[in-house]
């Protein structure tokens, strides 16, 4: 079953009288549990596509179905609810709140959820444990390394047990060793049943996905099954 389905999706921006077409008719379907990488050079529209798929922005034309439902008529409040319950986000710049501890950063999505407050602690501890940062739970993000920060962001993305995880250049600010750790964690999420949509311009990172979509100038130029998918994703042995 397709969790995401877009038909002839278009997005244009207008500024100072100049119209820029970021997406020029994108059609794609993503199945539940799939791991998809979206690749392309800078300005190809891959981040814009990810933001529209993650309800962070709205498309200009075309149709978008999420879990079979057309989202065009949803209000901002309804989209926020779906984002909270079914989506998780991992950003290139981590986007952690510096004045919050690791625990409080991971707890953030739960603040806006309908999950019973009594379960929050278990969920947060579980998510932090899954990324191997239990020993850092009360630390401030400023005391963590880049890799650790991104692992906190991953814990935050999975704390509400989302159906889809959107990752926008998750290894962009990390060295190769930390990048590998993060990608193994993301692959692990996919193995546990979460659909993962990853945007990257690095082939090595994209290779963790089972399917690679390439964008150029706002259009899909290729959509292929990845024969070189990285299979070894063992990271934390319990």
């Amino acid at each position: 079953m397709d969790i995401i389905s877009v038909q002839n999706l278009k997005k244009s921006f207008e500024g100072e009288g100049v119209k820029t077409n970021a997406l020029c008719g994108v059609t794609l379907n993503i199945k539940k549990g799939e791991f998809v990488s979206i690749m392309g050079p800078s300005g190809s529209g891959k981040s814009t596509l990810l933001q529209i798929l993650g309800f962070l922005d709205r498309h200009t034309k075309g149709e978008y179905f999420f879990e079979g439902k057309k989202i065009d008529e949803y209000s901002d409040e309804e989209l926020a609810k779906i984002r909270n319950e079914k989506m998780g986000f991992i950003f290139q710049t981590f986007n952690l709140l510096q004045r919050y501890s690791v625990f409080d950063n991971v707890k953030l999505p739960l603040l806006y959820s309908s999950v019973d407050e009594k379960k929050w602690n278990d969920l947060v501890f579980g998510a932090i444990d899954a990324v191997g940062l239990s020993h850092r739970i009360q630390h401030s993000p400023s005391r963590l390394s880049g890799g650790e920060r991104q692992r906190v962001a991953i814990a935050r993305a999975l704390v509400n047990n989302p159906d889809v995880v959107f990752a926008d250049e998750p290894t962009g600010n990390l060295d190769s060793k930390n990048g590998e750790q993060v990608m193994k964690l993301i692959s692990d999420l996919n193995k546990k049943g979460h659909t993962v949509v990853l945007v990257t311009h690095e082939t090595y990172t994209a290779n963790y996905a089972e399917r690679i979509i390439t964008l150029q100038d706002g259009k899909i130029t290729s959509d292929i099954k990845n024969k070189n998918q990285v299979k070894d994703t063992k990271l934390f042995k319990k």
């Binding site: 962070l56 901002d76 409040e77 926020a80 909270n84 986000f89 986007n95 999505p109 806006y112 935050r156």
Partner: peptide, 12 residues
């Protein structure tokens, strides 16, 4: 932006 991405509504 982050809070909104994580599910905060305008009202929140």
């Amino acid at each position: 932006g982050l809070r909104k991405a994580l599910g905060a509504t305008k009202k929140d």
